[in-house]
Amino acid sequence: MKTNFNVTDNGYYGNFGGAFIPEMLYPNVEELRENYLKITAEPSFQKEFMELLVDYVGRPTPLYFAKRLSAKYNTKIYLKREDLCHTGAHKINNTIGQILVAKKLGKTRIIAETGAGQHGVATATVCALMGLQCIVYMGEVDIKRQAPNVARMKMLGAEVRPALSGSKTLKDATNEAIRDWINNPEDTHYIIGSVVGPHPYPDMVARFQAIISKEIKAQLLEKEGTEFPDYVIACVGGGSNAAGTFYHFLDDENVNLIAVEAAGKGVESGESAATSILGKIGIIHGSKTLLMQTNDGQITEPYSISAGLDYPGVGPLHSHLFETKRAEFIAITDEDAMQSGIELSQMEGIIPAIETAHAFSVLDKKQFKSTDIVVINLSGRGDKDLNTYIDYFKL
C-alpha cells in the first residue's frame, strides 16, 4: 500500500498531528479548520495571494546553478534562492497567506512567535502592509542574539514581548503566544511560523510554503529538461522551509529528501536539537509529534548556535517522513554548519543564515554522483547572523 503524505481530515500525518488544545482555544482552532481550505480555494484569494508573492515578495525566486560548489563536490548543485525574498527568508510566503486568511475571518490583532526573528519580521511586515496590530513573542536569549531583527520588527510597528521562562528561546515564545491567544480569542489570529501546532496549522503553513517546490519543478524543467531532482535538501527546526521544498516531491519516491537538523555541540552532548534522533512521541504546542524529552516526559532544552533550529520538537509531517523513512534525517554540528557558511560565502558570494548553512554541510557527509541534480533550499540570508559569524570566526 502506498504511504500517504498528505494530512488526513482529522489532522494526522500517519501517527503524528492532531489538535491537542485547551478547551478555551477550541473555537479559534475550529473556526480556522472549518474555513481555511474554503478561503484559500477562492479565486479572489488566489489572485491576491499570487499578486503579492510576485509584486511584493519578489517571486519566483531564482534557481541558481552553483558552479564552484558543483565543481568542488563533483555534482550538479542548484540553490533555491529564498534568501532573495523580501525580508530575507522564506517566512514571508506563509505570513502573506495567513494575513489574508485572518482578514477574511475578520481578525484585527495578530500575534506571532519567533526564534531567529525572520518569522517575526515577516509577520510585522504583513501587519504593516495590511494595517493590523502586531505583537511578536520572542525569547529573551533570542532577542539578544538577533538584535537586528528585533530592531526591524519595531521599525515596522510591531511590539516585541520577551519570553522570560524556561530556556528563553523559541519554545518559550510559543508558550507565551498561546497564552495570549487564550486570553484574546475574539479579535486575534495567531500566525504560527512553522509546520507545528494544532491542525490545521501544519497543513496550512505547508500549503503556503509549497510555492517553493512548485517553482523548483518549473525551473528545473527549463534548465535540466526534468521536473525532478535526484536530491532535495533543506534544514529543519520546526520545518516550514523543508515542508515547502519537499511538498511537490513527496509522492515521487525517486526524489531523495534530506532533512538537516541541528546537532549543536554533538548529538549526545546534551546540547543539541536533533529531534529525529533524540526525540520520542509526545505532545508540544498542540500536536502529537517527535519531541526531545526526559524519561518522565518533561521537555528537554534544545540547543543550537542558530536561533531558528533550537526547537525541541519537529512538525508532524517531518515526524511522519522520518518514521516512514521517506526522508533521510542528518544532524549537523555548530562547527560544521559555521564552516559551511563560510565556504558558501567565499565560493559563491552568498552569506547564508546559520540555519541554512546546516543544509550545506550535507555536501561533506554524502557522496553524490556527477550526474545527480542536487537542489538545496537557501532558506535565508545571513545579515541577521553577522554578529554570530564575527564572534565565532573572530572576524
Rank of each mutant, 00 (worst) to 15 (best):
I92C: 00
G97L: 05
T108N: 14
R109K: 15
E159A: 13
T125R: 06
L156C: 07
V101M: 13
A163T: 10
G120M: 09
I135N: 06
G120H: 10
G115D: 14
Y78V: 06
R152P: 00
G106A: 13
N94L: 01
K67D: 01
I143E: 11
V101K: 12
Q118D: 12
E159P: 09
E113K: 07
R81N: 03
R109D: 14
A122D: 00
G117F: 07
V126Q: 06
T87A: 02
I143D: 10
G115R: 13
K144E: 14
I96H: 03
M130H: 15
V150K: 07
C127W: 02
A89P: 15
Y73E: 11
L132I: 08
D83M: 02
N93Q: 11
P62F: 00
G115M: 13
I99C: 05
N93R: 07
N94A: 06
R81P: 06
A151E: 06
H86I: 05
Q98L: 13
R68Q: 05
M138F: 00
T95K: 02
Q146W: 08
Q118K: 12
G139N: 12
T114H: 05
T95H: 02
L156S: 05
A124V: 08
V141K: 15
I77E: 00
S70C: 04
H86E: 01
A116S: 14
K72P: 05
A66R: 13
E159L: 04
E159C: 04
T114Y: 08
M138A: 01
I99D: 00
I143K: 13
I99K: 09
A163Q: 10
I77G: 04
I99W: 04
I143Y: 08
V126I: 13
N149R: 15
R152H: 01
A66V: 04
R109T: 13
A89S: 15
K103E: 15
T125H: 02
R81G: 00
T108P: 08
M130L: 11
P62Y: 00
R161D: 01
R109C: 07
N74Q: 14
P162Y: 03
M155R: 10
K72M: 05
L84K: 11
T125W: 02
R68V: 05
V121D: 01
L79P: 07
M155T: 11
K76V: 02
R109G: 02
Q146E: 14
A122C: 08
K76Y: 04
A151M: 14
E113D: 12
K103T: 15
G115P: 13
G157S: 08
A128L: 04
K103S: 14
G97H: 07
A71F: 03
V126Y: 05
G131V: 12
T87D: 03
N94T: 12
I110A: 03
M155A: 12
I77S: 03
V121N: 09
Y137A: 02
Q146N: 14
S70I: 04
E140F: 02
A163R: 09
R152S: 01
D83H: 02
G97A: 08
E113S: 06
M130W: 12
L132E: 09
Q133S: 11
C127Q: 04
Y64A: 03
A122T: 00
R145V: 12
K154H: 07
V101I: 15
R145K: 14
R68D: 07
I135V: 12
